[in-house]
Write a protein that binds this DNA or RNA. Structure first.
Lengths: 194, 194
DNA sequence: GTGTCGACTCTAGCAGTGCTAGAAATTCAA
DNA sequence: TTGAATTTCTAGCACTGCTAGAGTCGACAC
């Protein structure tokens, strides 16, 4: 146990607290309310300390929130699909339900993941949680008997993403969620359909 | 022809030039580059003049760009569907192609329409172009033999919106556009499918 | 042509924002 | 304890959206 160890531990702790503060503040009051000064106040340091942890500035903090969101989403999706009943349709239904629930329960995090953070995608430097999340989508959505699994996963993802974002913006009729989800699952599992 | 007439004409002209300047600047350099000072420079007035036209400030300017975008989208979609071959599938294919083309050709306008502007939706004060656009979606996407047309339109819309936004963010594989679109149309027209 | 008044535009300034430089404070090892 | 290294802070910059009130302009009456 050296002084250096403690310092690194404290530094990592503070790093995590910045990300957590950003995420909480965004979920509570929206991303417009997340300013470097408010974050600094929340962790009880002065504002320039943030840049020691995130040299990219505020954008880097938002990206960290997004990566954290992707990690949680991947874990949650994997658990849901694993716990679904046998066969493809229950897995797709569980995936869709869980995805939309995640977006609805964490609107600001979802916004960071898809609208605010400039994260590399499908590249060598793509963060692991993004790869993991897409892998769950591909494994679950791709039919075993037809075409390109990646393409199928992309289309399924687009459908879920579209549903999540339009619902968040209040642009879908609110009383129809269950039936619309059922219809979506029907369309995404045509060989198992009604 | 009175002095008042000319003034109203000039005022309307300036109103339109503000919206056009915002839209051009956003498409050229992104919405972060659209500031009230830059807009004012572009129309050759001082900055507070903007507030005489748009008392809501910058947000109201963005909303005006969005409403303009919805009007164009509705017109373009209606023309595409009207010009499609007979039957549902060609109409859905034309709709999908046109929708995604619009989003790809006008990324900043599309962002204003769906991410930035707080426009009322499905309410008495919903601007006409939004209603018109959704009507084209519903008329085209709703099958004539099954369930709730509104629900079907919403799901189709979500699919297209998801494809548009994920493509814009570079999150779909770029070489697969045509085949992914074909797959999307297949899924949205199951009774006409391949 | 001159003067007045109302409408319109402008300058100036405010609070707030992200970020940086260098001073000040703290920590740590000898 | 001292001095050096590290860390945190204060102060300030350019920029942003917005507002108040001064300044300018145009229209109209005389």
């Amino acid at each position: 146990m050296t002084t250096q160890d403690r310092k690194e531990r404290e530094r990592a702790d503070r790093h995590g607290r910045i990300v957590a503060a950003a995420r909480e503040l965004a979920e509570d009051q929206g991303w417009d309310a997340v300013t470097t000064r408010r974050l600094a106040d929340r962790i009880e340091y002065s504002q320039p300390v943030l840049y020691g942890h995130f040299p990219g500035g505020k954008d880097a903090i938002v990206a960290a929130v997004a990566v954290e969101g992707f990690a949680e989403l991947a874990t949650t999706l994997r658990a849901a699909v694993t716990g679904a009943g046998p066969g493809r349709r229950p897995a797709v239904a569980a995936l869709a339900t869980t995805y939309l629930d995640f977006a609805a329960q964490h609107p600001a995090t979802y916004t960071a993941m898809f609208d605010l953070a400039a994260l590399p995608f499908a590249r060598d430097d793509t963060p692991g949680p993004l790869l993991e999340g897409f892998a769950v989508l591909r494994d679950t959505l791709a039919p075993t008997t037809t075409g390109d699994p990646g393409r199928y996963a992309e289309l399924g993802w687009a459908t879920l993403h579209g549903l999540a974002t339009l619902a968040r913006a209040g642009r879908l009729s609110p009383d129809d969620d269950g039936e619309r989800l059922t219809l979506a699952v029907d369309l995404l599992t045509p060989s198992d359909g009604p």
